[in-house]
């Protein structure tokens, strides 16, 4: 049984069909990406899985139907979303942001998890007193990632982590993502930067105007002439 199983997922914005009944699955321990052009429905798909927007279709995390749960219940089930862009609490400090990630928890391991995040993101420890809104974009992205990890997710949904970042920062963010994956967290990544995404992921789905058009291993997608022509610049 896959960790995440999505069947016939459809999202409408008014009369516009943003996602047209797609199905895909992510196995435990995998790192899978959704790639495609702007407006293909990638972010919408991710938001629908995280229950941030209304959608039709079945979404299962193991054997539990997520599509029947409210958004705030998902983190307790092991699904964490790192939203697109500046998804941090801008006027809270870095430490407070990380603490919010463990908002739903009342177990005694929070301090240990915080120490682990600080190992993974040493900058967040150095800047723990700083107001999140004053961090650079890349650091904010790291903080959002750290906050999601404080929820101890089994499945991490990452929405465009490279967006708006300088190339060097993109490298850094992806190093961290790789490290998170190495710790056994399953990752579903949405990314416009297809080359980058396919280099870190094992499998990928190509989305085009609301549908999945190609599904294959990352290596095959990187070699696929259609993918190369459309998303990798020839």
């Amino acid at each position: 049984m896959p960790l995440l199983d999505v069947r016939d997922l459809a999202v409408h914005y008014g009369g516009i069909k943003a996602v047209k009944g797609i199905s895909f699955a992510v196995e435990e321990g995998e790192m899978v990406c959704l790639i495609g052009a702007n407006g293909a429905g990638k972010t919408t798909t991710l938001k629908a899985i995280a229950r941030m927007i209304a959608a039709h279709g079945e979404i299962r995390l193991r054997d539990e139907r997520l599509d029947r749960l409210p958004a705030h219940a998902l983190i307790g089930r092991g699904l964490a979303l790192v939203p697109e862009g500046r998804g941090v609490f801008a006027r809270l400090s870095v430490a407070e942001n990380l603490a919010m990630g463990a908002y739903h928890r009342d177990d005694g391991d929070i301090a240990a998890d915080l120490a682990r995040i600080h190992d993974l993101l040493p900058r967040m420890f150095e800047r723990r007193e700083q107001v999140a809104g004053t961090l650079s974009w890349g650091e904010q992205q790291m903080l959002a990632l750290g906050r999601a990890l404080m929820g101890r997710p089994k499945l991490l949904l990452l929405d465009e982590p490279s967006m708006g970042l300088a190339p060097l920062m993109v490298q850094k963010v992806f190093e961290v993502i790789r490290a998170v994956a190495a710790q056994g967290v399953t990752i579903l990544l949405v990314e416009q930067n297809a080359k980058l995404a396919l280099e870190v992921c094992s499998r990928g789905y190509v989305m085009e105007s609301g549908s999945i058009t190609i599904a294959d291993t990352a290596a095959n997608l990187l070699a696929d002439t259609r993918v190369r022509a459309a998303y990798l610049g020839g």
């Binding site: 705030h72 219940a73 939203p83 919010m100």
Partner: peptide, 23 residues
């Protein structure tokens, strides 16, 4: 906890939901 949840909603509602706050 409620006070922190209010502030989280003020700052970013989607992130607040993702943190498990019943907005």
């Amino acid at each position: 906890r409620i006070g922190r949840a209010w502030v989280a909603i003020r700052e970013d509602e989607i992130a607040a939901k993702a943190c498990g706050i019943d907005t």
